[in-house]
Design a binder for these strands. Sequence first.
DNA 1: ATTGACCCTGTAGCGACTACAGACTGTAGC
DNA 2: GCTACAGTCTGTAGTCGCTACAGGGTCAAT
Lengths: 157, 157
Amino acid sequence: MRDQKSVNGMQRAELAKRTGCNLETVRYYEKAGLLPEPPRTARGYRSYDSAHERRLRFVLRARELGFSLDEVRALLRLADERDQPCAEASRLASVHLAGVQAKIADLRRMESVLQTTIAQCGDGARPDCPLIETLFREDDSRRKRGDPATRSKFIHR
Amino acid sequence: MRDQKSVNGMQRAELAKRTGCNLETVRYYEKAGLLPEPPRTARGYRSYDSAHERRLRFVLRARELGFSLDEVRALLRLADERDQPCAEASRLASVHLAGVQAKIADLRRMESVLQTTIAQCGDGARPDCPLIETLFREDDSRRKRGDPATRSKFIHR
DNA sequence: ATTGACCCTGTAGCGACTACAGACTGTAGC
DNA sequence: GCTACAGTCTGTAGTCGCTACAGGGTCAAT
């Protein structure tokens, strides 16, 4: 539990190292209102304590679960202000969960098409590559539904 | 098959409508080197034909499968230049497939944590919200491995 | 002649960082 | 004291893949 021992007067680099957060991201989260502005030394250096570290861990953990910064802000407010935030937090998480599940469904569709076409390529010695041909063909599901313009709302990067 | 009939001298809006692509995105793809610069009318208006449409459909279909614009460029080059692009296309798609599968695994981890904590919230009448508490606790997998800084390489938005 | 719908260009914005330039500070070795 | 180097500070620009808009020109119909 060496990461959890109480330390005060840390600089930004140590806070970053202790939490596994990128150095610049700490400042970014501060500017974005996710972390409070820490006190400064006489020369203007940021000085963090374990409360800052705890809060940063919360943010990082929420980000790992895919919450947006807006959602993290909302969760932090619940953690700070409310003594019984369960209902609201649960609602927030449920909405987010639905988004995660929709993304999984989307990615699974991609996965299956990719697997199929890669399998069709097989030896790779034919003149018409099935993968390239698949990309030139119109989407089956769209053609069947007669719907020329429906695409996933999600942007995959 | 009304979308597939050959049309020449389309303007940008019609090409966009026929492919379901956003109007501005057509221009963006052109600037990004994914679509060739179309001939212009005397007054400088772009004039597309069915070859442009075919190429745009290719790009959109590849994007639906989650390929990055760089990958789409590579696929287009294969489709254009090589008579037997199977091996290379298949390699490209396999690398991409691995990325898709890693994202799915990542999202499934999020899903399971979210489901568990939402279930723990239950009635929502307890003073310590399990969801908030989970976010304050350090990541189990990381703590077990004694690894303070390993996070998913993927950015989920 | 005017209205409105199209087209053109360049540019700014999004989210969530990440990186860097240019200035200052703090410490260690000589 | 001098120098080197590592740390900190600020603001700003770049990333990806779009999306939107301002400010101008064009075209068809009324």
